[in-house]
């Protein structure tokens, strides 16, 4: 497994951990014993808004720590350069992840039309965003391993 593949694995693991901890934290702090909050749009707005900077900052920190550990263990730098193959793989991954998120979005809005409660829409939106990001990384890993 080379550097790019290892970096993708770090991203996958950190995304799962960050999202998992965040959902667990929000659930324990706000939702337990107060299910009514799920119908509060302000709660959903705040939860989404907080997740973005938290996820970005944590990802950056994790990648810095990974780069340091990688340098110590393998005596190699993490590649910072992107070339034509990286860009092509990135484009294919983005296309698939956008498709997944679009289906999630349409599904979420469609459920609203059928009278499902709005919090279900937010859960589906959040889940499809997470799934799209996971699939994007897995697709990248697949193309790096199998070729393009």
């Amino acid at each position: 497994m080379d550097q790019k593949e290892r970096q993708i694995l770090v991203t996958i693991i950190s995304t799962v951990l960050i999202t998992g901890f965040y959902v667990w934290y929000v659930y324990q702090k706000h939702v337990v014993g107060n299910l009514e909050i799920l119908n509060d749009f302000k709660f959903w707005g705040r939860s989404f808004l907080w997740l973005i900077p938290l996820a970005v900052v944590t990802q950056i920190v994790i990648h810095i720590i990974y780069a340091i550990i990688n340098r110590i263990v393998t005596n190699e730098d993490v590649p910072s350069k992107t070339d034509e193959m990286d860009k092509l793989i990135e484009l294919k991954a983005i296309r698939i992840s956008h498709l997944i998120f679009t289906f999630g979005f349409i599904g979420a809005i469609g459920l609203l039309a059928f009278g499902v409660k709005p919090y279900v829409m937010f859960i589906i939106l959040f889940s499809s965003g997470f799934l799209a990001s996971m699939v994007s990384e897995i697709v990248k890993l697949y193309y790096y391993r199998r070729g393009i």
């Binding site: 992107t82 070339d83 393009i148």
Partner: peptide, 17 residues
């Protein structure tokens, strides 16, 4: 001007430059 990984992929016939 490419990464070593891209060159390995080309050499192994996994990527057409």
């Amino acid at each position: 001007g490419v990464t070593r990984q891209t060159l390995i992929a080309i050499e192994n016939g996994k990527y057409s430059p």
